[in-house]
Design a binder for these strands. Structure first.
Lengths: 199, 199
DNA sequence: CAGCATACCGAACAATCGTTCGGTATGCAA
DNA sequence: TTGCATACCGAACGATTGTTCGGTATGCTG
């Protein structure tokens, strides 16, 4: 993959910043102003260079980002952390830490975990769990469920049992919940597809 | 907060889809084409309505997203999951699963955790850890460190001790690492600011 | 030294854009 | 029935845009 010149990187940074902040691809003259350049032609040439290297696409009179440049909006996932290197080599980037990477899609949602019932599986109090409400949960899956008349929300591991389901905590202090087949209150909210913790 | 009419929502969806896919605010005629409308004036009126309700901003000849509409790009973090509601009420959305929320900032990076030395604190084998290389780590912090001549990378909890540091695992099967003050190989890669797991 | 890539300028043209205007149609509430 | 909000049309104007052209300057490399 080709590298960018410092100037091309600067132009791309301005573009990404604009997309990030206001959801808009800046006009050529706008980029020029931010970089204190006088001629739109200068930026135009940089855009062409960026397109030639795969960071931008052009259709008719419209410039847009590519998957390649969209990645810079996220945090890189590094394979090996090179010894003492403040800069991260392109070759060692295995992916990017985008919301999509952790399963964020339209239609899904996220809930904060309350309680310590799943600490045994590394799900702590205060963690954020990403839920897919459309996925059909099978036995053994981590699920979010509504329980009881209060319709409380819980994270548990689902197990099919004769006569109904069981919701297994991962903490010896908590008990397995037995759900009869005809429980009027029990309903699955969805399957857990991702987890986020902030320190 | 004012609600959107179905048509306004449709227009906003087209805009968000375009920003999401190609990092570009679509032109008025482009939106019209996607919605199979013939006149740009129609879309223009919808944009004005969206702006009046706070979903868009206009500066001179430029339309852009607002914080309000940018939120729809991410996965909502729901406070209470309403019983049986397939749709999520606006009032219960506490935030959004954006890159910023995940701790993604320029300069940070992410590494995959190998080994089970931190399972006691809910950090499992295969988890992704978000690292801030610029944050100064204090005693008690979760850190990423380079160790030994091989400069292996480890996640551990840092403790100051007379004569150096200690790196504490959170798993009885692993031992505390004692780092003398003058260890030529030991170096901190950064502080752990986030954690991410995929199921 | 010549050659080449990078980086910039200013002027101008045509394409595209946002915007305005005047108009029609529908459905709902007073 | 009269209003009013919503939703759409087509034509046209001027602003802004991408784009081209010809040109200068610098620094690195062979």
């Amino acid at each position: 993959m080709e590298r960018l010149t410092p100037r091309q990187q600067a132009v791309l940074d301005v573009i990404l910043e604009s997309v990030e902040a206001e959801g808009r691809f800046p006009s050529i003259r706008e980029i020029a102003r931010r970089l204190r350049l006088a001629s739109p032609a200068t930026i135009f040439q940089h855009l062409e260079a960026l397109a030639a290297k795969g960071f931008l696409r052009r259709a008719r009179h419209r410039w847009m980002l590519t998957p390649r440049s969209r990645r810079d909006l996220g945090v890189p996932i590094v394979g090996r952390v090179a010894a003492g290197q403040p800069l991260i080599a392109w070759e060692e980037i295995e992916g990017h830490m985008t919301p999509e990477f952790m399963g964020a899609r339209r239609g899904r949602f996220s809930v904060r975990v309350k309680g310590a019932s799943m600490t045994g599986e590394g799900i702590l109090d205060g963690d954020y769990v990403i839920v897919d409400p459309d996925a059909s949960a099978a036995s053994g899956d981590l699920v979010i469920a509504y329980l009881g008349a209060e319709q409380e929300v819980t994270v548990k591991r689902l197990q099919r049992r004769r006569g109904g389901w069981e919701l297994h905590p991962a903490n010896p202090d908590y008990e397995i919940l037995h759900i009869p087949h005809n429980d009027p209150f029990f309903r699955l909210a969805g399957k857990v597809v991702g987890l986020l913790r902030r320190f």
